[in-house]
Write a protein that binds this DNA or RNA. Structure first.
Lengths: 246, 246
DNA sequence: ACTTGCCTACTTCCATACAAGTCAACAGAA
DNA sequence: TTCTGTTGACTTGTATGGAAGTAGGCAAGT
């Protein structure tokens, strides 16, 4: 067969490999399988997946545009550290957009949508205990459903690149994120939407999306090497480039 | 010299050409120099700029990710039509984000910023009569200044790809957009921020960013071939692929 | 000890060749 | 006339070799 499997990810050589590599590498970065500041050499990854360097290179270009890798010409390609300030800005954008989505939903009628969301809530409670990773998927689905319901599905698509900045933080330390509390907040949002309480829904959504602000400083304290410290201290301390892979 | 000049855009072969090509082509598409549904064959553009296919190809990939071109494997690469629904969604996102920026600015103190914005306003009035294209630049600068002032400069960066969807509409028909009115709205926003009138600033910003909704239907009526009609009518009328370049 | 210059082994970037799919035109048969 | 199969000139996707630049090791000179 023309299937190559590396680290649990499969690549189908019969279809275009460049977009597949892009998705695989993005996922590996967001899930912290490829760690910040680790090298991603073109020939090495090409050999790993049994393809040429060109598709790898094209995947790198896309990841660079998303701010996930940094390619320094004639020097090497590295997984970006998490930009603390970028996370804050991404969160700001998400709060603004989803607050308006919540307002829109609460000011209209959405009986079928409410039923769907309720079902998702019970599902979230069921699986969250066992697998925080599975909860991440359901969380993603929940927020996407809200966007769809508000008739702005494409807007959610716009946020995908932004959201990846926040997701990286979550994947570093699941335990820092109070999943049960997050689900309660989800339920609160749905309640307000059902009651057509516009500003209530908005406030609940904003509170929900500010939750990461509680965890973020602790995560940075635990894993300072994973972060680009450009948040408060304007003095940029350029730390050494240190290899990650042996 | 190693400079190649095509259609008023210059390309410096000594520096990396791929990002330059990306910027040039993006600008040409947004400014409607390259029209919707026109072909962009890799070898043709490569020959035009005196480079190989590879950098052209890499530029295409980036443009595809931004939704500006559509590359159909083994068939060809085409400039995307303007997706009516995508424009509406982009506008929705912008309104949400910039409304929060306006709120943030109005709730804090920004004396120096106000002076800067006032200066920009007079500049806008000066040049707008002569050159609508110049006004576009100043408009961009105005909104970016607001984002910077609110301490969320990176958020504005996130919106760039989104904004391009709206800019394409503007560049098709400058005359449809009441520039004087837009400047008045700018001034209104600055006034409210200066008075620290939070909800006033928010409302003014939202009204400003809804302005495009007045022009959009007329633009689509004037140039229906430039649009992907996926807004109201769910029936997708696939029009013929028609060549643009002779 | 310290600096300077070269040399080698890397890296990304670009050019070129080949592989594979698509589409239109066209020849031939019913 | 109409349908069908084939050919060939396109397209983009991938592979590979070389060009240009960088970083570090090492030897020679101060």
């Amino acid at each position: 067969m023309d299937l190559v499997e590396v680290e649990g990810w499969t690549l189908d050589q019969r279809r275009a490999v460049s977009p597949q590599l892009r998705a695989i590498l993005r996922s590996r970065i967001i899930r912290n399988d490829l760690r910040p500041m680790s090298r991603l050499s073109e020939p090495e990854i090409a050999k790993e997946y049994g393809v040429s360097r060109q598709p790898v290179r094209e995947a790198f270009i896309t990841l660079m545009n998303e701010g996930l890798v940094e390619v320094r010409p004639q020097r090497g390609t590295y997984v970006c550290k998490i930009d603390y300030n970028a996370v804050l800005n991404a969160r700001f954008v998400r709060e603004a957009v989803e607050a308006d989505i919540a307002r829109k939903l609460a000011s209209e009628g959405h009986d079928h949508l409410i039923r769907d969301l309720r079902a998702q809530l019970t599902l979230q409670r069921d699986v969250s205990k066992d697998s925080p990773e599975r909860f991440m998927e359901l969380d993603e689905r929940f927020h996407m459903t809200l966007a769809q319901g508000a008739g702005v599905a494409k807007s959610w698509g716009f946020l995908e690149g932004i959201k990846s900045q926040m997701d990286r933080v979550r994947f570093i330390t699941f335990e820092e994120f109070p999943i049960a509390k997050l689900i309660d907040q989800h339920e609160r949002i749905v309640d307000f939407i059902e009651q057509k309480a516009v500003s209530g829904a908005e406030d609940a959504m904003r509170a929900h999306l500010r939750e990461i602000l509680n965890s973020l400083p602790r995560v940075q304290d635990l894993y300072p090497d994973y972060f680009e410290n450009s948040h408060g201290l304007s003095g940029e301390k350029k730390s050494q480039h240190q290899e990650e892979r042996p």
